[in-house]
Amino acid sequence: MTELLGVAVLGAGHMGADHIRRLDRVVSGARVAAVTDPDTGRAKEAAAGIEGVGVYAEAEAALDAPGVGAVLIASPGPAHEAALLAALRRGLPVLCEKPMVPDPAGALRVVEAEARLGRRLAQVGFMRRYDAGYRRLKEVLDGGRLGRTLMLHCVHRNAASPSFFTSEMLVEDSVAHEIDAARWLLGQELTSVTVLRPSPSGGAPERLADPQFVVFETSGGALVDVEVFVNCRSGYQVRCEAVGEHGSARIGDDQGPLVTSAGSASTGVPQDYVVRFADAYDREVQAWVDATRQGRVTGPSVWDGYAASAVAEAGVRSLRGAGRVGVELAGRPDLYGGATG
């Protein structure tokens, strides 16, 4: 296939604008064919200088635009279900940013719609599966050198949270990445969630429960803990340590050069996720474009998106005072096989 894949990008905010730049300047084999955002001024700004791109206020207009052969959804989470279902009705391949659909019932509707088609068209944007550090950690665990994995210790920190962030979004939007990463790294489902709330940081906005400490139990008997702290002030930090029967492996400490000067040593801390995971996003979108042009889907499935939403919903119930909450998943359609993640 020599013709460029025409991609409609839904959403021109922080993430959407970065994907528009990536498709236009970094990724090979694709072009931005359409951009949509309710704020058409923002959409025009994000698409400025790109030849032949159409700008629309409505998502479905972009899906029907000339030259569109695939869709990248980077709009706010509540808009994802309608966009995914519209793309599936048109038979368009999709890369959808997480959370795929915030509520499990809506996510399951997407799973059922794709299963009825009898073929995979959609991929969910869990980009940590494409990060070099996470991929190396996955290789170590799968290789068996550490024996059975007993625990994962995870850290997820942001310098500051957006003004619209709620206590629930720490679980639904931030810890969602650790939910998928844990399922993928361990090859196990998460079966229960407990969210603990220390005293809020003085740097957190009023009424925001920040930080939080989240504990997952898994189907294979492992424990996963996540410190999520979205107003830590120091920068964007993501770490993961796997503890096995015969040793441990840790990633996330090598994000900048170590500078020694004037009697001290220091290293830079990224201030934003699009900086920290820039390479992972590039690999993810390139892999999606390559697979799509070959008529395949190779990344995280909508089942993975549904599972993450179900676990996050249980986490929100725990956050609101329900204590330890079990996770119940619907039956997995045959389309998505039996392996976790």
Score class of each variant (00 low, 15 high):
Trp184Met: 04
Ala339Asp: 07
Leu335Gln: 00
Ala176Ser: 11
Gln212Thr: 13
Gly13Ser: 00
Gly67Ala: 06
Val195Phe: 12
Asp24Met: 02
Ala308Cys: 10
Ser309Gln: 04
Glu3Cys: 06
Ala182Arg: 01
Gly203Asn: 15
Ala314Cys: 11
Tyr336Phe: 15
Glu313Ala: 15
Ala113Asp: 02
Arg320Leu: 14
Thr298Leu: 14
Val35Met: 09
Thr191Ala: 02
Gln237Ser: 11
Gly338Arg: 05
Gly299Arg: 05
Val311Asp: 06
Ser248His: 12
Thr36His: 09
Val175His: 05
Ser318Pro: 14
Leu5Arg: 01
Asp225Val: 02
Arg296Lys: 14
Leu121His: 00
Ala43Trp: 07
Asp142Arg: 07
Gly305Cys: 01
Leu258Glu: 13
Val226Pro: 05
Gly144Ile: 05
Gln286Met: 06
Arg89Phe: 10
Glu178Leu: 08
Cys96Tyr: 02
Gln188Val: 00
Ala182Glu: 08
Trp288Ala: 01
Ser264Thr: 15
Glu168Asn: 06
Leu84Pro: 02
Leu150Lys: 07
Ala322His: 14
Gly247Leu: 07
Val27Ala: 03
Glu58Arg: 13
Ile179Leu: 10
Val224Trp: 12
Ile251His: 08
Ser167Glu: 10
Arg31Glu: 14
Val55Lys: 03
Ser219Pro: 06
Val289Glu: 05
Trp184Ser: 06
Gly220Trp: 00
Ala12Met: 05
Gly52Trp: 13
Arg332His: 01
Gly295Ala: 06
Tyr273Asn: 05
Phe277Met: 13
Gly91Cys: 00
Leu88Tyr: 01
Asn158Pro: 00
Phe126Tyr: 15
Ala12Arg: 03
Thr40Trp: 13
Gln212Leu: 15
Gln286Gly: 09
Val289Lys: 01
Arg317Ala: 09
Asp64Asn: 14
Phe126Trp: 11
Arg250Val: 12
Asp18Val: 06
Ser318Gly: 14
Ala181His: 11
Lys98Pro: 10
Trp303Lys: 00
